[in-house]
């Protein structure tokens, strides 16, 4: 009897199915970003679903680089759909929290099923994103004191929303694993 395995498609680790699934996570981030923007206009609120889907992506494909791929695809899709007025900064805005989530996954592989783990990662990744635009503000001549104050306020809101969004992830991941819809991430060298 022969076992047929899936072909590796991207970055020597992702199968095509996994890559498409991660790309859908990017689609959801973009969709929710567009929708929320229209209704709420609250600072940092887009981090609610951004962190949710980034952490979910880690749960779907528990491999190093999965969330980074989501961040990359989200920024490029945002640009294509006209949501990337900030230019190259939009890349950093999504890649930075994504890389942090990947790093957390590398250090603590099973964190997505822990509410505390998701909360910590969600808050921290959201906070760092708030500092992305400080470079531009410094170039424009904003005083350091104001930059720090603004960044703190921004970080506070982003962290709050990101943390709230991340809390729902463990329950969803557990339910999907229980129903055999996603792997539990314990097989092989997933973080290679």
């Amino acid at each position: 009897m022969e076992t047929k395995t899936e072909r590796i498609y991207l970055w020597r680790r992702f199968t095509l199915r996994e890559a498409v699934l991660l790309c859908f996570c990017a689609t959801f981030i973009v969709l929710t970003r567009a929708g929320l923007r229209l209704h709420l206009h609250m600072p940092g609120h887009v981090m609610f679903f951004t962190m949710f889907f980034m952490l979910l992506a880690r749960g779907f494909v528990p491999k190093l680089g999965s969330v980074t791929l989501v961040g990359l695809l989200t920024s490029l899709t945002s640009v294509l759909l006209g949501m990337g007025a900030s230019g190259p900064i939009v890349l950093v805005k999504f890649l930075l929290p994504a890389v942090l989530v990947d790093l957390a996954g590398f250090l603590v592989p099973g964190f997505v099923t822990s509410a505390l783990g998701c909360l910590a990662v969600g808050v921290f990744a959201s906070i760092t994103r708030a500092g992305v635009s400080t470079g531009v503000e410094y170039l424009m001549g904003m005083e350091e004191e104001i930059i720090i104050g603004k960044a703190l306020i921004s970080a506070g809101f982003s962290g709050l929303w990101g943390g709230l969004g991340s809390l729902a992830v463990p329950a969803i991941i557990r339910r999907l694993r229980l129903n055999g819809l996603i792997d539990d991430g314990t097989e092989g060298s997933l973080d290679a």
Binding site: M1, E2, T3, K4, T5, E6
Partner: peptide, 8 residues
């Protein structure tokens, strides 16, 4: 296109 199972 079948993947991940056992075939003969």
């Amino acid at each position: 296109l079948l993947r991940g199972g056992r075939s003969s």
